[in-house]
Design a binder for these strands. Structure first.
Lengths: 212, 212, 212, 212
DNA sequence: GGATAATCGAGACGGTACGTCGCGTCTTCAT
DNA sequence: ATGAAGACGCGACGTACCGTCTCGATTATCC
C-alpha cells in the first residue's frame, strides 16, 4: 500500500501517473456546490454529503482533494468572485483610495459572505496552512493594500513619516472587524470616514505646504 | 446590568412552580463539566454527551435548560472566574488605568480562554440573546470600562473634548481582537503601549512628563 | 340542627383528617384514562405519562397502585364493560347456549379489544398474579362457562359421558384463539357452527331418543 | 417457499447496484447477535443498541435493512436452526406421522423459543409482510404439514372423506397454542395423544385393528 | 491493441453524537 | 400527610454525517 500523498494542486504539470487522471470538472463542481450551499444555509450547515449530492460526485472524490469539510469550505469561498480587489486606483490620492477600499470592505462585510468568512476564520484550525491562506485571502490582503496606500501617502508627504503604519492598519481594519463581530454599532460608510479621520489625526501633514 | 438571557436561573422570579424545583447542583455540575471540557479540548470538541457523562447528569436535564450545545458553552464560560475586571483602580491617571486594563485583556487573550471565547463569538447565532450577553460579558464590558476611563481623561483635560470616543474605543479594542483572530502580529504589552500611543496621538493635550 | 354540608364533591369524605379523600377518584380516573388510551392507540402506545396527563394525576400516584405500565393496562382492561357474560340463559339446550356464547366470544375478538387483550396476554409476565387474573378474566372464564354448558349437556345425555371435556374445550376455544392470532382464516359465526359440529362429532348421542 | 419479505437478501436478483454491496457478514452478525440476546433475556429486552454492540456493527447499518427492532427479532428467529421440520417421515401411517410432528411442536413450545415466538407473534403488526412470514414460518407451516398428513389419511381411507380438515387442523394446533398461551393445563405428549383421539373421534373409519 | 492502473459514481460500512421520549424515583408545595 | 406537578438520572430511540472501504465502470498511459 503506497503512501497516499495529498496533492491538491490540480494542474500537476507532467502527468506521470498511469491511471485515469483526476477530473478537474469534478473539482470545480465540488467547489461550486459547496459555495452555493454555504450561501444558502451558511457554513455551519455545510455537509460533505450535501456537497457530493449536489455536485454529482462521490464522497471519496472530495476527500481525494481536501482533507475535511472545513478545507472544502475555505477553498470554495476563496474561489468565489469576491475579489474586493481595490483595483480601480484612479484615485487622486492614496488616502482617497484607502477610503474607497475601506468602503468596499464594509460592503463585503455587510453581505452574508462577510459573516460566513468570519465564521470560517474563527472556527478554523488557525495554524493550518489553508487557514492562513484563507485569512490572508480575505482579510490580510485587504490590509496589505491598505499598507501600500498608507506608505504611498507617507512617500507623498501626506502622512508623517514616523507613523507606526502597522499599528494604524490594525486599528483601522480591526475596528471594522470589531464592529462586524460585536454588532454593537453601525458598520457603514460614515464609520469609514470617521475612522480614517480619527486614525490619521495627528498624522496628517498640512498637505498644501508639504506639496510645495 | 441586568440582561436577562432566558430562564436558566432557577429562582428567577415569582411563579414558583409546584413541581420539584430544578436542581441547582445539577446546573452547576453541567456548567463545570462544560467549562472543563472546553478547556481540555476546545469548544469545537464539546459534546452534550460528554457534558452529561462528566457532570453525572442525564442529557435531557441539559436540554431542559439550554436549547443547544452552544448555549451551554456560553453559559459555562460566562460563569468562569474570568473576571478581567480592572477593579484595581489605584491608578494615578485614567490613561494609565486604561493601559493596565488593556494589558489584562491581552493577557486574557493569550490564554486558551481567549481563543475559545473568540471562537464562540464568531460561530454563534449573533442575534440570540445569549449570544449578545456573551459578547457583552467578555468583550463589550471591557470596552465599557475603557470608555469610562477615556471619558475621565476628557474630564481631566488629558484628552481633547472633541475626540470621537466611540471610534477610538473600536480602534483600540478592535486592533487587539484583530491580532487575536488573524495572528499576523504579536499581541503583547508592547502592542498595548504603541496602540495607545497611536490611538491617542493628536488627542492628548498637555503631555505630562509623568509618563515614563 | 345539621349544618349544611357544602361538600358536593364525588368522593365520600369519610376521612376528613388532613388529606386523603381523593384516592379512589384518582384510581378511577387513571383506569379510565388508560382504557381510553388503549382503545385509541393500542396497548403498545400506552405510556405512564400519557395516563397521568389525561387522568390529571401525578405519576407517583399511579405507581402507588400498580408496579408498572403493564399492570395498569391489564387492570384498565379488566374493568371494562366487556363482560361477555353469556348471561342470556333463555336457551333451550346447553349446546345452543354454548353456540351463543361462542358467537359472543367471536364478536369480542373481532373488536380492537380482542387484539388488545391478546397482545397483553402474550407480552405479559405469564407468571405474575395479575397476568393470571387477566387471562382468567378474559379467556379462561369463557372456557369455564363452556365447560359448565358441556357438563350440562352430558348430564342431559346429549353428550357421551366418556367425552374428554377438557380437551374438547381447548380444541374449541383454542381454535378461535388460533384464528385470531394467525389470521389465516375467517373468524365468524360460520366458524362457530362448523367448529361445534366437528368438535362434537362422535360425541353426540341420538338426541331424539334421549329426549323421548 | 419464496416469500419475499422486503429486500434484505443481498444478492437478491438483478439490479446489482453500483455502490458497495451490502456486507453479508454484517447481516449475519446482526441476526446472530439478536438471536443470542433474545435467548438470553427474551425478546422484550432486545435493544438495537445491544444488537449493534454485540454484532460489532453500527446502528444505522441495522436500520438500513430492517425498519425496527421487531423485524430484526423476527428475522433473527426465522434464521434459527429451529427447523422443527418433521422431515423424518418414516412412519407407517400418516396419523402416526402427525402424532410425531405434534410431539415435536410441543417440544418446541416447551423451550424458551416457544414463548419467544409467541410473544413476537402477539406483539407484531399482524399485517406486515414480515409478520405474516413469521407466523407462517413458525406455526402455519406446521399446520400445513399436518394438513398434508391428514389428507394422506383421507386418501388412504383412514379418515372419513367428509371431514372438515381445516377445522380439525385449527382445533388441534389451536389447542396446543391455547395451552401454551394460557398455561392452565399441561402441554405434553399425553395431551397430544388425547387431542388426536378426541379430534379424530368419529372421523376414523376402520378402528377394529387399532383397538387391541 | 491489449494490459494496467488510477479515478470516477455510488453507496454500504463502523462510528459518534444528535435531540427526543419514556421510565420509575425524588422533592417541593398547596390543599 | 396526600397528591399534582414536575425535575431528576438513566437508557434507548431513530437520524444525520463523519471519514473509510469496496464495488463496477471509465479513461488514460504504457508495453
Amino acid at each position: 500500500m503506497a503512501m497516499k500523498v495529498k496533492d491538491n494542486s490540480p494542474p500537476n504539470s507532467a502527468a506521470r501517473g498511469r491511471g485515469r487522471p483526476r477530473s478537474d470538472s469534478a473539482r470545480r463542481a465540488i467547489l461550486r456546490a459547496a459555495r452555493e450551499l454555504i450561501e444558502e444555509n451558511g457554513p455551519t450547515a455545510l455537509t460533505m454529503e450535501g456537497i457530493a449530492a449536489r455536485a454529482g460526485v462521490g464522497k471519496p472524490t472530495i476527500y481525494r482533494w481536501w482533507p475535511d469539510r472545513h478545507s472544502v469550505a475555505m477553498a470554495a469561498l476563496m474561489e468565489s468572485e469576491s475579489a474586493v480587489s481595490s483595483s480601480g486606483s484612479n484615485s487622486r490620492s492614496p488616502l482617497e483610495a484607502l477610503q474607497r477600499q475601506l468602503r468596499k470592505v464594509v460592503a463585503l462585510f455587510a453581505t452574508s459572505m462577510g459573516r460566513n468568512v468570519t465564521t470560517m476564520i474563527a472556527s478554523a484550525d488557525h495554524d493550518s496552512e489553508l487557514s492562513k491562506a484563507f485569512r490572508n485571502h480575505f482579510v490580510l490582503a485587504r490590509r496589505e493594500e491598505g499598507r501600500s496606500l498608507l506608505l504611498q501617502a507617507v512617500d507623498r508627504g501626506e502622512i508623517r513619516p514616523d507613523a507606526d503604519v502597522e499599528i494604524v492598519l490594525d486599528m483601522i481594519y480591526g475596528a471594522l472587524f470589531f464592529r462586524l463581530l460585536m454588532g454593537h454599532a453601525a458598520l457603514d460608510d460614515a464609520l469609514v470616514k470617521q475612522l480614517l479621520e480619527e486614525a490619521l489625526r495627528g498624522l496628517r501633514r498640512r498637505q498644501r505646504r508639504a506639496s510645495k
